[in-house]
């Protein structure tokens, strides 16, 4: 013991020194660092959790957006189809109405034409009757003269024509 220099006094001194150092280190470094590390770990954990929930939220919202887009597409297609239908219907209606109108116009034109024709025929008949009568009168007047026969007809016709001209 003596040769090695082990003395109770020095042993206790070093023992107490070590313990003092231990507690001082605990107060100065371990305590704050442990607190720091724990709080940091908690912070990291919390932020990781937040990130996870955020990513989940993002995923769900993306799904939602997709679904919305899909539904919007369907709706849009429906709207387009409806519009096309309406347009087709409208066209058909318009076409029908136009056809009807045309037909009525044609009808009206036809009846007008008919009436005109009838009136014209009537007038022609009247004229021809008059002409015939006039011609007959002339024939009867000129029956004495064969020569003048033909000249008479010509005269009537001429008169008739000029009368028609007027």
């Amino acid at each position: 013991m003596d040769a090695l220099g082990i003395t109770l006094q020095q042993l206790l001194t070093q023992l107490v020194s070590f313990l003092i150092l231990f507690f001082a280190l605990y107060k100065l470094a371990y305590g704050p660092i442990m607190g720091m590390l724990d709080s940091r770990a908690e912070k990291i954990k919390a932020s990781l959790e937040a990130a996870e929930t955020a990513s989940l939220e993002a995923a769900s919202s993306a799904e939602k957006v997709e679904a919305e887009i899909a539904s919007a597409r369907i709706e849009g297609q429906k709207v387009i189809a409806e519009a096309r239908d309406a347009a087709a219907r409208l066209r058909e209606q318009e076409q029908g109405r136009a056809r009807e109108e045309v037909e009525t116009m044609l009808e009206r034109a036809r009846t007008e034409i008919g009436r005109e024709k009838d009136a014209a025929v009537e007038e022609v008949r009247k004229e021809f009757a008059g002409l015939a009568i006039a011609a007959a009168e002339k024939i009867v007047e000129g029956s004495l003269d064969a020569k003048s026969h033909s000249s008479l007809i010509d005269k009537v016709l001429e008169e008739g024509l000029s009368e028609r001209k007027n």
Partner: peptide, 13 residues
């Protein structure tokens, strides 16, 4: 102790 004091004085994240 000096190192420990400097290390643990104002722990930062």
């Amino acid at each position: 102790l000096f190192v420990a004091w400097r290390a643990g004085r104002k722990p930062k994240d």
